[in-house]
Computed example of a mutant assay.
Amino acid sequence: MDNYSNDNTARRYTAHVSILGTTQIHLRNPYIIAWWSVSFPGFGHLLLSKYIRGYLLLTWEVVINLKAHVNLAMIYSFQGNVPMAKEVLDTRWLLIYIPVYIFAIWDSYRTTVDLNNVYILSEREDHKINTFSIGALEMNYLDKRNPLLAALWSLFMPGLGQLYIHRIVTALVVIVWSVVFFYYSHMLEGVSLLFMGEIERATEVLNPEWLLMFPSLYGFAIVDAYMNTVENNKLYEKEQRRFLKEHYQKRTFHILKGKKRI
């Protein structure tokens, strides 16, 4: 059972602990969140714990990007072959891609600003949150974990850092897409050939369109795991302070600051 059930007695809550993960609101930089949406639509929303919207935009980005050959055009542009970049682009899909891409950036920025305001108001209300959730299949609880270890697991395999801090749904989505990217990009095959010294074959087997998905995926997995571990630790310490203050601190206890009593 939950220690504190969210019974809608508060207008706003800063966090909620469920068997699928810990969802919380905290202050974020709107420009950083918008930048992640620039890097890969959907990632900005996932950093905000806007999961459904984030998963939809993430799937949209992969499908439409491949249909429009955006990544392939980027590769030709990096090589200075602009005419070829124009030729490979499929405008039928590209014209669908552009407005959604812009929307993802704008919406993640707008939502970050709104959630920052909500966080400030919820902090003033300072309502209790549940700290423990248990069900037939899983359990979750507030605990302190190592942010560097979360980032390290994400470096080994995107999604493992999220599993470490119990972000189950995000971990599942990131791991599934990682497997898809690994398979269609032939990245691991290329790494194996590289270790055997067959550099030309390693380069030939790679699929650049799928391979270009990896920088954003790895970056997001590492940043998301690290950032949420830090924030979960802060939430744990805050709840622990509240508990100790309510159950162990005497009402007559005061902190002296100079000659003033707080």
Rank of each mutant, 00 (worst) to 15 (best):
V82T: 10
I134T: 07
S133M: 06
Y164I: 04
M196F: 03
G54N: 04
G159P: 07
R241T: 08
V173L: 10
F40P: 07
F103G: 14
P158M: 04
R201I: 14
I52A: 06
G161Y: 12
A171G: 08
W60M: 15
S216K: 01
F220C: 01
M84I: 04
K257E: 11
K86S: 12
D126M: 05
I175M: 15
K234R: 14
S154N: 02
Y76D: 10
Y97R: 12
G219V: 06
S5V: 12
I52L: 09
Y218K: 04
G161M: 13
R242V: 02
F182N: 13
T9M: 12
R124C: 01
A171T: 03
M139F: 14
A151M: 11
G159R: 04
L72I: 05
H166Q: 13
W93G: 10
V174G: 03
F182E: 15
S39W: 04
Y109K: 14
H254K: 15
P158T: 08
I129Q: 02
P83F: 08
S37D: 11
L217P: 05
A150K: 05
S39Q: 09
Q162E: 10
I52F: 07
L194F: 13
N232T: 08
L211C: 06
I25K: 04
I64E: 06
L193G: 05
G21R: 00
L193T: 05
W210S: 12
G54A: 06
R11I: 09
R124G: 03
I75W: 01
E198G: 01
A68V: 02
R242N: 07
A104Q: 13
K260W: 09
Y248W: 15
W93L: 09
G135W: 15
V38M: 12
F253V: 13
P99L: 13
K50D: 15
L211R: 07
E239T: 01
M74Y: 11
Y236P: 00
K234H: 11
L20H: 02
V100G: 15
K259D: 11
K128F: 10
W36D: 00
I255T: 14
E125M: 09
R145K: 14
T111M: 03
P208N: 04
I96E: 02
W36Q: 00
Y76Q: 11
T91W: 15
W153C: 02
V82C: 04
G44P: 02
N130R: 12
N3R: 08
L89R: 12
G44A: 02
S185A: 14
F156Y: 09
V88R: 13
I134F: 03
G80K: 07
F40A: 07
E138R: 14
Q24T: 04
L115N: 05
